[in-house]
């Protein structure tokens, strides 16, 4: 673990390094492209994603409707673009939520000896639940809405992050300059932010990328099981769960959002994998 702290990681040339690895770079470019497509959806598509045209339903892909139309006559291409906004936002929000909670818990456990045992036990208890199972139960308890899906998935992934943070903090805490700062009477919060958090950026970044990917998959899974985001909010997951009943008649409704998920998640994994290799070769072994 010592390697994490020593290697310092304020790599100015991260992008350059990424460029040296084509798969990671490709992943990064695709993600950026997906985000841009989602943001520019209104510019790219002439259609309104919610505009019903019941009489024009289940049309196969044409130049007019690139991805065809769905069961209510809405343009699937437009819906995939707009869904990208929600799906990516949900994934990102889960990362933020999980990071805030995870870092907080991890720092508490790693830095304050007295809190280590109780916080670690809580983390152990949370991690005893399989992730989808815990998410289903939490969403059922909180009610199915985008916010609650974010909270549920955040709660699911936070302990995983907390573990990584705790382990790293335990090491960083013992570093000479941290001990020196403590001896000099620098207030604990300042030490935590200035020394500990900075050293945590790299393991966090790697974890965050994978959580991002997992969150997008998990959101789709919850929507499929009917315990996720309300289907009137288009996400890739809800598009698939609506489209599955037309898998035979109009397979395009399900194929395209599925493809969008695969592309996005794959790119995120490629980036995560690349980051892990550059930032911390040692971590490459810990899944």
């Amino acid at each position: 673990m010592a390697a994490i702290a020593q290697s310092g990681f304020r790599e100015p040339n991260l992008l350059m390094k990424m460029a040296s690895r084509p798969t990671a770079m490709a992943g990064l470019l695709i993600i950026i492209a997906m985000i841009v497509l989602a943001l520019l959806a209104p510019v790219i598509s002439p259609y309104d994603p919610a505009q019903l045209a019941v009489r024009n339903r289940l049309q196969p892909p044409t130049w007019q409707h690139l991805f065809g139309t769905d069961d209510l006559g809405r343009d699937v291409f437009t819906r995939v673009l707009y869904s990208g906004r929600t799906s990516i936002t949900v994934g990102f929000a889960v990362v933020i939520f999980a990071s805030v909670v995870g870092v907080f818990l991890g720092l508490l456990a790693g830095f304050f000896r007295r809190l280590d045992a109780p916080v670690s036990r809580l983390i152990d208890a949370m991690m005893a639940f399989p992730d989808i199972l815990l998410a289903i139960a939490l969403v059922a308890a909180l009610g199915a809405s985008a916010t609650n899906v974010v909270i549920a998935l955040g709660v699911v992934y936070a302990p995983r992050l907390a573990r990584v943070v705790r382990a790293s903090t335990l090491v960083i805490r013992e570093l000479p300059y941290v001990e020196a700062a403590r001896a000099l009477g620098v207030p604990t919060p300042v030490i935590l932010v200035r020394h500990v958090l900075r050293n945590l950026t790299s393991p966090l970044l790697v974890q965050a990328t994978f959580i991002f990917a997992n969150a997008i998959l998990a959101e789709a899974g919850l929507s499929f099981l009917g315990v996720g985001i309300s289907p009137d909010i288009p996400t890739w997951g809800t598009l698939i769960s609506v489209g599955r009943q037309y898998l035979e008649q109009a397979p395009w409704i399900m194929w395209f959002p599925g493809g969008a998920i695969i592309i996005t998640v794959l790119s995120l994994q490629l980036v995560g994998d690349g980051l892990r290799d550059f930032l911390d070769p040692r971590l490459a072994k810990d899944i």
Binding site: A220, G221, I240, L247, I261, V265
Partner: peptide, 13 residues
Amino acid sequence: MFAASIPSFWLGL
């Protein structure tokens, strides 16, 4: 990585 990116229900269907 590609395999790990496919939603399992999608593949199953």
